[in-house]
Design a protein around this nucleic acid. Structure first.
Length: 594
RNA sequence: GAUCUCGUAGCUCAGUUGGAUAGAGCAUCUGCCUUCUAAGCAGACGGUCAGGGGUUCGAAUCCCUUCGGGAUCACCA
């Protein structure tokens, strides 16, 4: 709620007393944006007040409207449609708002470090296979939420937990040893993550073949799955790894390094980064220690067989195991350890945001409850940023069925697509090859990022690889294009000297644009409180459409009245800045030409 | 079986704590480049908000129910 709405609200309460002798409770005063087919800037819904005043909606609206326009200087007119009182702000009010926006160097953002530290976890891949489309949604979401929280004034620490340990990586290791012929990223020219992923697939093929063979000789499926030689070998490697067997550990290090080098290339192209990395291999023992402590404090209890549990039935959940009977750590155990380690590393952390798929909702409910019971009050500000699957037309992506969309491939094809569109138009023909390549990349990535971020994170979404992602309409490139126009105008303006625009009359396109720009802080606040980048995407799109209409209707450089030209130049500059700023919250860069 | 989630135009998606005639983009069709970048602007077409019931001044939104999609409920991660 902005200060103008607050003023109207107080004046409505005053009207209640002086016109009707009634006290309106604050909750009965409801605002909504005025629909564009009606005249007005803000709408008061009067239905809730009709009972209190024993009057008909239309009459009440008329009375309140007259009262408000008389009392508040910034209101110039009103109209009543059914039970809706539409109020019109004066041009003077809008001019003043514009002055306020221009004065602030970073319009829309809250002061830096005005809110406590939040930790945002995202990406967190396994190290046995390359990143795919689902990881792209994850990374873009996590990075964008970090940017949004920062813009809202939080200190932000971006982290990931790298699942570098476990049976999955041993599978790739085993297959590489068995049939790798000492292949390396250098010898094959493959990205390290792709090479390791290749062996993971190879393992799976071999494993399946063995199962089939065993079942043919009379084993049940379960037996076959447990007794296949390759799985036994992988399990043996995991045991040796835990014992610290030198050969196994050094192979593990070597192959993980390959993967990290590959991931680094992918992250760089994605435009995401991290402030601190946590490795499961370094934190998984911490969880066990914390469970031991909690056991001593009575938070956990031990069953007869030696396994350790927590009872969450009072919280509406079940009993949950936190240590196996052989004393080894489980998935939750590790997450408990990692969370606590982070609170210890950054003691001023108010809460953690976990960007993880929605299939793990139960897991995080459990985790947060456990942290709370262990005495970590930051648990209240922890949040599972849960997002839906990216579905393909044929259903879910399944790595085993080869229906994954590889992250590197997709990013490359977006750049190629953007090159095609640009070459067809020929607008960039005077750029150097390097400059062109950068531009294609920036445009392609914006199409991809915007496509994934404009959708409500919690919903499943559809991606059709056959129909390439659009560059027209509600898309990243559409928004970039408007930005490029603003920059082009500012360039061409040369050394035009700005004048005061005080007292010029504004038309509906100028007014709409100011109105739209003034909503930016609200958009950031809503996005930050909901952890939802799609709010920012919707804002950027709305602003872009409004600017485009303005651009089409009002000539800027050719305007002869210097005061009006100054106003339009200012609007152009501010629109460009605001578009770039909001897109930056989505992790999307702006080209200077396209 | 239990719990959660989703179902809105041919397709992809918006739709605030319940509010006005349910909105965008794509696709299809009409106009607009001798004028600041047409990756644009202006317009047309397109809906039983999955079905049924309820709550009330008022329901896509809240409650119940049926149908349909997805997920979760491991001493897997």
């Amino acid at each position: 709620m902005n200060s103008m709405q607050e003023l109207i609200k107080q004046t409505v309460i005053k009207a209640g007393q002086s016109l009707f002798g009634v006290d309106f409770p604050e909750t009965s005063i409801q605002f909504q944006a005025t629909r564009k087919e009606f005249d007005g800037d803000i709408t008061l819904v009067v239905f809730p007040l009709t009972k209190l005043t024993q009057s008909k909606p239309e009459e009440l609206g008329e009375k309140l409207g007259a009262f408000l326009v008389q009392e508040i200087e910034a209101l110039t007119a009103f109209n009543v449609v059914k039970g809706f009182l539409n109020l019109v702000y004066t041009d003077g009010f809008w001019m003043k708002s514009l002055e306020g926006m221009v004065k602030q160097p970073d319009w829309g953002k809250s002061p830096k470090d005005s809110r406590p530290r939040m930790m945002v976890e995202y990406s967190s891949p396994n190290t046995n296979k390359p990143l795919h489309l689902g990881h792209l949604r994850n990374n873009f979401l996590g990075y964008s939420v970090s940017q949004i929280l920062e813009a809202f004034g939080h200190k932000v620490t971006k982290v990931q937990i790298i699942n570098d340990r476990g049976i999955h990586i041993c599978k790739s290791m085993y297959a590489w040893l068995k049939s790798g012929r000492n292949e390396t990223p250098e010898s094959t020219g493959m990205k390290g993550d792709k090479l390791v992923g290749k062996y993971y697939v190879e393992f799976d093929l071999q494993y399946k073949a063995e199962i089939k063979e065993l079942m043919a000789t009379g084993s049940s499926e379960d037996e076959a799955k447990q007794q296949a030689p390759s799985i036994l070998a992988a399990q043996e490697m995991l045991r040796q790894w835990e014992e610290g067997n030198e050969e196994v550990v050094s192979l593990w290090k070597k192959m993980n390094q390959w993967v990290y080098a590959g991931f680094d290339v992918t992250y760089a192209r994605m435009g995401v980064s991290f402030d601190k990395l946590y490795f499961e291999s370094e934190t998984y023992l911490k969880g066990k220690e914390e469970v031991e402590k909690g056991l001593a404090n009575g938070v956990f209890f031990k069953k007869d067989d030696g396994s350790v549990w927590i009872d969450l039935t009072e919280e509406g959940l079940d009993q949950k195991a936190v240590l196996r009977r052989d004393g080894t750590a489980m998935y939750v155990t590790q997450d408990i350890g990692t969370a606590i380690l982070r609170f210890e590393d950054y003691p001023d952390t108010a809460g953690q945001i976990y960007t993880v798929g929605n299939e793990q909702e139960y897991h995080f409910k459990v985790l947060f409850k456990i942290l709370k019971k262990l005495g970590w009050t930051q648990s209240d500000a922890c949040h599972h940023l849960s997002y839906g699957m990216v579905e393909l037309p044929e259903g879910k992506m399944k790595s085993r069925e080869g229906t994954v969309v590889d992250a590197d491939d997709l990013m490359e094809s977006m750049a190629t697509e953007s090159r095609l569109v640009a070459d067809e138009q020929g607008k960039l023909s005077d750029l150097t090859e390097d400059e062109k390549k950068d531009t294609y990349d920036i445009i392609g990535m914006s199409a991809l990022k915007y496509f994934l971020l404009r959708v409500d994170p919690k919903k499943n979404m559809m991606f059709n690889p056959q129909e390439s992602i659009d560059f027209n309409g509600n898309t990243g490139p559409f928004i970039q294009y408007a930005y490029v126009r603003t920059q082009s105008i500012l360039r061409r303006a040369g050394d035009f000297k700005m004048e005061s625009w005080n007292g010029v009359d504004i038309n509906e396109w100028e007014r709409n644009l100011i109105k739209c720009l003034s909503a930016y802080p609200n958009a950031i606040e809503e996005a930050a409180s909901k952890y939802d980048p799609s709010v920012v995407a919707a804002f950027a799109y709305e602003l872009t459409k409004t600017f485009n209409s303005f651009y089409q209707q009002c000539s800027i450089l050719k305007e002869e009245n210097a005061a009006l030209k100054s106003l339009r130049m200012e609007l152009t500059a501010l629109s460009g800045q605001c578009i770039a700023s909001s897109m930056q919250l989505l992790g999307i860069e702006m080209p200077t030409r396209m």
